[in-house]
């Protein structure tokens, strides 16, 4: 290291960590506490942890984390009651989502083929999980669970609520008072109530409003509730984008004689939606986390399978390990979404 480089490092340390006597004390205190906490955690999670065996091995272990529990339960937590030997199907489902999200990261892959793949492949994978062709056994939707269900609820929720939200936002800024009023009522009522009450509606109230003889499965009803809920929030985000646009853009589009549809599709929306990428993604992340609420109406999503795995009489008492595993899965997805959004913003140079 040259003298200049060393000085730069020392300067950096001095300005960022030791700028005043108070900061010196604070830095050392924090270092001490943080290392101690980190060390305790590593000691529990790595050094004294039990990595294999059964519950008894864990109970007679060194008192560390019982990852044997996660090893034993991971397949159930991730794929629920889906027949064990057939679980390559939901695994493929999850893998397809991974692959598509990964490809979407890079601008050079963006094409109509990728868009088509986003429509066709998840549908195909869902068909694969459904089965009933090419000698694949049919698996009832009630047996789908865990991560694929969470992903499906979130993916369909996002892809349906985005366009509906745009329509609602445009309706809220419409010149027609009736359309505007209906849109305002819808958005404000939905945003005013908790998601749980919407899910209760889906679970116990929707069936009352269906004509006799028609039944819709609870998963679909919950999906509809999630879409209705998320649309209202999306609408407000999009409205923010519409408002942020300079008035001249609207006027210019009118001046060159564009119709309403053309004005919106080619001039207003591309700019408005680009301006609100960050809040849009925050809404998506919120929706992804909110899918966990379907647990309360007993749909077997990731949250539900996690809770159910903790009830196993053979493995009682490893709650923390179970929750850490579930939290890790949720965290990875949410962090990935927000990471991609900041990349997207850079790619589009907002």
């Amino acid at each position: 290291m040259t003298g200049v480089a060393r000085n730069r490092v020392l300067d950096w340390i001095k300005t960022n960590l030791f700028s005043s006597p108070f900061n010196i004390v604070l830095t050392f205190l924090l270092l001490f506490v943080a290392t101690k906490l980190l060390w305790n955690f590593l000691d529990w999670a790595v050094l004294r942890a039990v990595w294999g065996g059964d519950a008894e091995t864990c109970r007679h272990g060194a008192g560390g984390a019982c990852w044997a529990y996660v090893r034993d339960k991971a397949r159930y937590v991730l794929f629920g009651h889906y027949p064990y030997e057939q679980q390559w199907r939901p695994q493929l489902f999850v893998a397809i989502f991974f692959l598509l999200s990964l490809l979407t990261q890079f601008k050079r892959f963006w094409s109509k083929y990728l868009t088509a793949a986003w429509v066709v492949l998840p549908l195909g994978a869902a068909g694969l999980m459904w089965g009933g062709f090419f000698g694949l056994t049919h698996v009832e939707m009630e047996e789908w669970g865990g991560l694929p269900l969470t992903l499906a609820l979130a993916f369909l929720g996002i892809s349906a609520s985005y366009p509906i939200g745009i329509v609602l936002a445009l309706a809220r800024r419409s010149e027609m008072p009736v359309i505007r009023a209906l849109s305002v009522i819808y958005i404000e009522v939905i945003r005013g109530v908790p998601l749980i009450s919407m899910l209760f509606m889906a679970a116990v109230m929707f069936p009352l409003f269906l004509p006799e003889g028609i039944t819709i499965s609870k998963v679909v009803r919950a999906q509809v509730a999630i879409i209705m809920f998320a649309s209202a929030y999306m609408a407000e985000v999009v409205r923010g984008g519409l408002q942020s646009l300079a008035k001249g853009q609207y006027e210019a589009a009118d001046a060159i004689g564009l119709s309403y549809t053309k004005k919106m599709v080619f001039v207003v929306l591309p700019q408005a939606l680009k301006a609100v990428i960050a809040p849009t993604v925050n809404t998506f992340i919120g929706l992804f986390k909110d899918t966990s609420l379907v647990f309360i109406i007993s749909l077997s999503d990731l949250m539900f399978t996690t809770q159910a795995s903790l009830q196993d009489a053979d493995w009682l008492g490893f709650t923390v390990e179970g929750y850490i595993f579930a939290a890790f899965v949720y965290f990875v997805f949410c962090y990935f979404i927000s990471f991609s959004s900041s990349r997207l913003e850079k790619e589009l140079k907002v």
Binding site: I285, K289, S292, L293, M303, A327, Y330, C334, Y335
Partner: peptide
Amino acid sequence: LRNIPLLL
């Protein structure tokens, strides 16, 4: 904390 569901 922002990236983990509140329910969990």
